[in-house]
Simulated assay, not measured.
Amino acid sequence: MMSFDDLKALANQICPLHVIINAEGKIVSFGPTLQKLSSGASWADQPFFDIFELQRPRWVKSIADLLETTGSKLHFQLRSEPHTRMKGVLVPLPEGRGAFINLSFGISVLDAVRDFNLTSQDFSPTDLTIEMLYLVEAKSAAMEASRQLNLRLQGAKIAAEEQAFTDTLTGLKNRRAMDHVLNRLITSGRDFALMHVDLDFFKQVNDTFGHAAGDAVLQRVAAIMVECTRKSDTVARVGGDEFVLIFEGLMDRDRLNELANRLISRLEEPIMYGAETCKISASVGTSLSSSMLAPDAAQLLHQADVALYAAKRAGRAQHMFYAPQQEAQMMEQDSKTA
């Protein structure tokens, strides 16, 4: 006849989630997986019903009743937190020595694995739980891979959008970004000022020192414009040596005139390219969204452009606000040069 120690060793191998009780209902032995659930407490010699609450079948009220449930499905719950639910089947031991109860977590397996840090080593090699654990691990790995892929795709999308709205030479916004900002401001009904800046004498820099020098000058111009504006303002390069600055909520003419003149003064400072000294200036024209009952982006850009060329006709390195009479003056000048 198999000794109790042999039975225990065999049970630990093939049913690591088991309890052996004696005829009085006290725990004689329990499997290694339940050792983890006991959190180091000694269940040996403890009454079975002090550790496990039998929930079904409800007619079982005593150990004698429990021993009558041979082959029936039993539903248990640990009395201690986290009150893990289990299912079991009881098999009586020979000669009325008690019973062997084989347990499983059933649908509570994922909670048990999480709560007690269980691994595949805590289950019988033939237990379907192992297959479930493999599936959970595979799902977790797949979800993590999917999360990482989504992060990379999101980063790539943000980078692509940023690149689509950025001038590659200067790092400023480009015309597409300017159009986006103008449409947003007009749609929201926010007042804003639009400043068109055109560099004076930039062609001479390119012709005299080459396009590399011209690129260096444009990069320095971009840095100066960023220094002279607020973080909330938009600075865009919209052409070779043309820039548009958008000032949301800034409509004070004195402040705008002061800003434009400070910008012109800064741009007149010599820019060094190697041993060469590059000298430029800028002409500036400004239009205000409040000057129109229904602001239109194209019309505001046209008005700033008209004011800009009025500044150039007045001798360059100047700032002018749009005025309707400038339109007639520009047409008259164009007809003379035609």
Rank of each mutant, 00 (worst) to 15 (best):
M2A: 06
M2R: 15
D5Y: 03
L7R: 13
I14M: 09
N22V: 06
A23W: 10
G25C: 00
G25D: 09
T33A: 10
S38T: 06
A41F: 08
F48M: 10
Q55P: 00
D65W: 11
T70K: 15
Q77L: 02
Q77G: 04
R79L: 13
S80F: 09
S80I: 11
S80M: 09
H83Q: 14
K87C: 07
L90H: 01
L93Y: 14
A99M: 07
I101M: 09
I101Y: 06
L103W: 08
S104N: 14
A112T: 01
A112Y: 06
A112W: 08
D115R: 08
D115S: 14
N117F: 11
N117P: 05
N117M: 09
S120Q: 00
T126R: 10
L135I: 11
A138G: 11
M143L: 14
Q148F: 01
Q154N: 13
Q154E: 13
Q154M: 14
Q154W: 02
G155E: 12
I158C: 07
E161L: 00
E162D: 14
T166K: 11
G171F: 06
L172T: 13
N174R: 05
V181A: 12
N183W: 00
L185T: 03
T187D: 13
G189P: 07
A193W: 10
L199Q: 03
F202C: 01
R220N: 14
V221R: 08
V221S: 08
V226H: 11
E227H: 10
V235S: 08
V238A: 06
G240Q: 06
G240M: 05
E242Q: 07
E242K: 00
F243M: 06
F247Y: 15
L250T: 14
L250W: 09
N257Y: 10
N261T: 04
R262Y: 07
R262H: 09
E268R: 15
I271D: 12
I271V: 06
Y273D: 12
G274L: 10
S281Y: 04
S283W: 10
S287N: 08
S287D: 10
L288V: 00
S289V: 02
S291F: 01
M292H: 13
P295G: 01
D296N: 15
H302P: 04
A311P: 03
K312S: 04
R313A: 15
A314T: 03
A317T: 02
H319V: 12
P324W: 01
P324D: 08
Q325C: 03
Q329P: 05
M330C: 04
Q333K: 10
S335L: 14
A338P: 03
